[in-house]
């Protein structure tokens, strides 16, 4: 039960965690993240890394689509920019991973700004299609600019390294990916405590009024694009280090749709929702795989049906959440929390 949490200062009132209970649970969660790789088997570790990457990318797309209201079908393309940047720099320069990841984010942000430039004239779904065009061009560049991207064969890269330590195992990658994911989610949370985040939301809710109230639309739309694609770039860079190979097919259009689906299923314009959505959507194929494996002894054909079933479940989740739970998993989570916040004194 949460009562009597009156605050003495505005600082305390605007803190992210406003009660000791919340701080306690969050500390417990961080501890669990830390202990997880020590207990988990290889498969769970692999999943943990995948979820971490997905959380970063989904948070990025959430900033753009969920908070600023600019729908983007280019997320996979931006991730590709990050992935190729990391691959190229690690192959040609041998820079350590913090530098390559930063470069990946920055280059993706630059591309994001370029893609966002039409956003002042082009609105709504037309903008979505502009981002679609961008992802077509990016895919073309990945496939055709062979001297840099290695063409259809792509690039293979060395494991990430820093101060002589190489991160060749999933176990070690976990300690890059997950802390970075936590950090980047917090950074996003911070943005929405300041005027920049408010400007984003204002643009989403009523762009014209926002402009009259003093928000430079182009500037903030581009900022949102830059921030979002920075996140995508870092996620793409981690993806490259994780799989140690990038090809044009590593970042297909369906990946952009995957991330949009994660944002929607999780809850648009809700950072917690983005995290839940990313985890949920990443784990669904895995659950389906387990199910298929369990069914194969009885139905030898089961593996054939897995990929189409996955398509159907993806589609059904998108449609179902939009129709029945437009605020996504985050809303479900809040309902559960509300239930327990008064428990056991329920009326």
């Amino acid at each position: 039960m949460r009562i009597g949490d009156a605050k003495q200062t505005y600082e305390a009132d605007e803190a992210i965690w406003t009660s000791p209970t919340q701080k306690f649970w969050f500390a417990l969660f961080l501890l669990a993240l830390l202990v997880f790789p020590l207990m988990a088997n290889a498969y769970l570790l692999y999943l943990g890394c995948l979820v971490g990457i997905a959380v970063i990318s989904t948070t990025g797309l959430n900033i753009l689509t969920g908070f600023t209201g600019l729908i983007s079908l280019g997320q996979a393309g931006f991730m590709g920019v990050g992935g190729y940047t990391v691959a190229w720099f690690s192959l040609n320069t041998g820079l350590p991973f913090p530098v390559t990841l930063l470069l990946a984010g920055l280059l993706a942000a630059a591309v994001g700004i370029l893609v966002g430039l039409p956003s002042l004239r082009v609105k709504g779904l037309y903008l979505a299609i502009a981002t679609l065009a961008a992802s077509v061009f990016l895919h073309f560049i990945f496939a055709e600019w062979e001297s840099v991207t290695g063409g259809m064969g792509g690039l293979s890269l060395e494991p990430a390294h820093l101060f002589g330590v190489t991160f060749q195992s999933d176990f070690r990658m976990y300690f890059i990916i997950v802390p970075l994911a936590v950090l980047m989610v917090f950074a996003a949370r911070n943005v929405f405590r300041t005027r920049i985040g408010r400007a984003f939301i204002a643009i989403r809710d009523r762009d014209i009024s926002a402009e009259i109230l003093g928000i430079d639309l182009l500037r903030y739309k581009l900022m949102s694009f830059a921030l979002s694609s920075f996140y995508a770039g870092v996620a793409g860079g981690l993806f490259a280090y994780f799989y140690r190979v990038v090809t044009p097919e590593s970042f297909p259009l369906s990946m952009s749709i995957f991330y949009l689906a994660a944002v929607i299923v999780g809850g648009m314009g809700n950072l917690l929702g983005g995290i839940l959505g990313a985890a949920f959507m990443t784990l669904i194929p895995e659950i389906l795989k387990l199910l298929t494996a369990a069914l194969t002894p009885f139905y030898p054909n089961a593996p054939v049906f897995m990929s189409p079933m996955l398509e159907i479940i993806f589609g059904a989740l998108i449609v179902g959440f939009l129709i029945f739970e437009p605020h996504g998993l985050a809303e479900i989570w809040h309902r559960i929390r509300r239930f327990f916040s008064l428990w056991p004194f329920r009326n």
């Binding site: 689906a261 189409p308 996955l310 398509e311 159907i312 993806f314 589609g315 059904a316 998108i318 449609v319």
Partner: peptide, 8 residues
């Protein structure tokens, strides 16, 4: 989403 369902 519908498109995805149809493909599946």
């Amino acid at each position: 989403g519908v498109a995805s369902i149809l493909v599946g």
